[in-house]
């Protein structure tokens, strides 16, 4: 007999609010990087030069096009 037959599974219906908040923050941050940054994030440390070099934008350039996001 399997061990599982002697066990009872306990489930609670509660929604894990903290986990959802963590995932939501990760989702917003990562979608911003992949789909929207045009130099703004690096401008925090690089200044206005970041809008010309757009390193993050270029880094995500190909997947941005392929995933359907507007790029440039």
């Amino acid at each position: 007999m399997s061990l599982h037959h002697d066990q009872r599974v306990v489930e609670k219906d509660g929604i894990p609010k903290v986990s959802i908040a963590v995932l939501a923050i990760i989702a917003i941050f990562s979608i911003y990087i992949v789909g929207y940054d045009q130099g703004q994030l690096f401008s925090l440390v690089q200044g206005s030069e970041a809008y010309d070099t757009m390193w993050l934008h270029e880094f995500t350039h190909d997947i941005r096009h392929a995933a359907g996001f507007p790029c440039h």
Binding site: A24, S30, V34, W55, F59, T60, I63, A67
Partner: peptide
């Protein structure tokens, strides 16, 4: 080169987004 190599990290970020959603 930067764009092509970056596509793997960018793919991971895209996956983080939709995996989280």
């Amino acid at each position: 080169i930067w764009q092509k190599e970056g596509t793997f990290a960018a793919g991971a970020f895209l996956g983080l987004t939709y995996g989280a959603i």
